[in-house]
Computed example of a mutant assay.
Amino acid sequence: MVGTQQLRRPVVFAVQTLTVAACYFAAGRLGLLRQLVVEGAVVTPLYPPTGVAVACLLLYGLRCWLGIAIGALLVVWSITTPGLSVIGTVLGNTVAPVCACLMLRRVGFRISLARLRDGLALVFLGALGAMLISSTSGAVLLVATGKLEVSAFWPVWLAWWVGDAMGVLIVTPVLLLALGVRPRPNLGRWREALGLTLIVVVLVPVATRSTLSVLFLIYPLLIWAALRFQLVGSMLCALFASVMTTIAATDGTGPFVHLSDVEVMIKLQAFNGSMALTALLLSALITEQRNTRRSVELACDELIEVLDHLTAGETPQGRPPPARRPLE
């Protein structure tokens, strides 16, 4: 029995590593389908592998780092020739999610995202903070190897950083819900959920393709989804809207027509960032308030039960109350 368990552990680790690597590579290739050119460098406005990496580390532990490194290596090799910059990029793309996981654990992050502090931690530590590592290392290596001019460092760095951060903000919560929390669906609201889905599917493509710049129409849908379906509804809505907006931006249509590549990147990332922050923080705040209300209701029920026992002349343990001294 002991021998079987010792043999099983390496097999499980190998399968898990290969699965993480495959998921990372698939997400990377999916993200590379939509690219923008900033100062001669090709960047992805939404890079899903960073979200996949952070979610895997939070769910399955730091042992997933090897699968992330293998997946990052395969993604980089699929678009460039091997060299020093490849090793540095892979290292940065591996260290950044690991640092994000460590910082989130340090502050007591919960994968349920049921507290406002969890949403804030994911935004400022997991996304905006940790992804500085990958963007800085990647841009520095491009300059050091002569593939990028020094004057173009900051635009490329900013685009790289925001693309990685958007992957964490949009993809990680969806994966945490799908693989970790699995909230119970409210079947009593299926008609409302169906109606919201139909409106999102119709309105979002229109808003992202219209030349009238009506992207703001997406925000009421995010608020509706957050109020009625909390994190599940808001993040799925944000994910769909971000994908459709990214497609419109890379195609140069709708509100992104007649804009330069840098202007497209700025407008797209500003919209995706504000939308992800709205969906994540609003839904986390609503969930926290609902949990607090349930706790208060439970405490009130327990207090009523205690008062009923006392009114009946018994203590909660079923013993008679202590005798009282007569008044003199």
Score class of each variant (00 low, 15 high):
152 A>N: 07
18 L>G: 13
64 C>P: 02
18 L>Q: 02
131 M>H: 14
294 R>L: 15
164 D>I: 11
300 C>F: 11
149 E>M: 12
158 L>W: 13
262 V>L: 15
69 A>Y: 05
46 L>R: 01
175 L>G: 02
51 G>S: 13
130 A>Y: 06
118 D>H: 04
53 A>M: 07
26 A>I: 14
141 L>V: 02
166 M>F: 11
64 C>E: 15
311 T>P: 00
315 T>D: 06
133 I>Q: 06
30 L>G: 05
178 A>Y: 09
129 G>Q: 02
161 W>H: 15
303 L>N: 08
223 I>Q: 02
144 A>C: 03
243 V>G: 05
172 T>R: 08
46 L>G: 00
279 A>R: 04
185 P>I: 14
161 W>Q: 08
34 R>S: 11
190 W>C: 07
217 L>W: 11
228 R>G: 00
138 G>A: 05
3 G>H: 08
64 C>A: 15
168 V>Y: 05
40 G>K: 13
51 G>Q: 09
267 K>S: 13
275 M>G: 04
188 G>I: 00
205 P>G: 12
251 D>T: 03
97 P>Q: 09
77 W>Q: 13
6 Q>S: 12
61 G>C: 08
174 V>A: 14
174 V>E: 01
29 R>N: 10
291 N>R: 14
101 C>Q: 12
43 V>Y: 04
125 L>K: 04
92 G>L: 08
11 V>H: 01
282 L>T: 14
268 L>H: 06
244 M>W: 01
105 R>Q: 15
50 T>I: 05
31 G>F: 04
284 A>L: 01
213 S>H: 11
228 R>L: 14
69 A>L: 12
13 F>T: 12
179 L>A: 12
327 L>E: 11
59 L>Y: 03
290 R>S: 03
179 L>N: 02
140 V>N: 03
114 A>H: 13
237 C>F: 03
135 S>Q: 03
137 S>Y: 01
180 G>A: 13
181 V>T: 15
63 R>G: 09
89 T>W: 03
67 G>S: 04
304 I>V: 12
222 L>H: 02
318 G>F: 03
42 V>C: 00
188 G>Q: 13
22 A>D: 03
8 R>W: 09
226 A>K: 08
79 I>G: 09
109 F>T: 01
324 R>E: 11
237 C>M: 07
157 W>N: 10
196 L>F: 09
108 G>S: 05
309 H>K: 14
260 S>Q: 10
176 L>I: 11
99 C>M: 15
22 A>G: 07
20 V>F: 09
321 P>Y: 06
305 E>H: 12
217 L>R: 01
266 I>A: 13
137 S>C: 08
130 A>K: 10
317 Q>D: 15
226 A>T: 10
168 V>L: 08
153 F>R: 08
106 R>D: 07
75 V>C: 07
302 E>V: 05
20 V>W: 07
141 L>S: 05
41 A>E: 05
59 L>P: 01
36 L>Y: 04
259 L>F: 11
156 V>M: 07
287 T>E: 12
158 L>Q: 10
278 T>V: 12
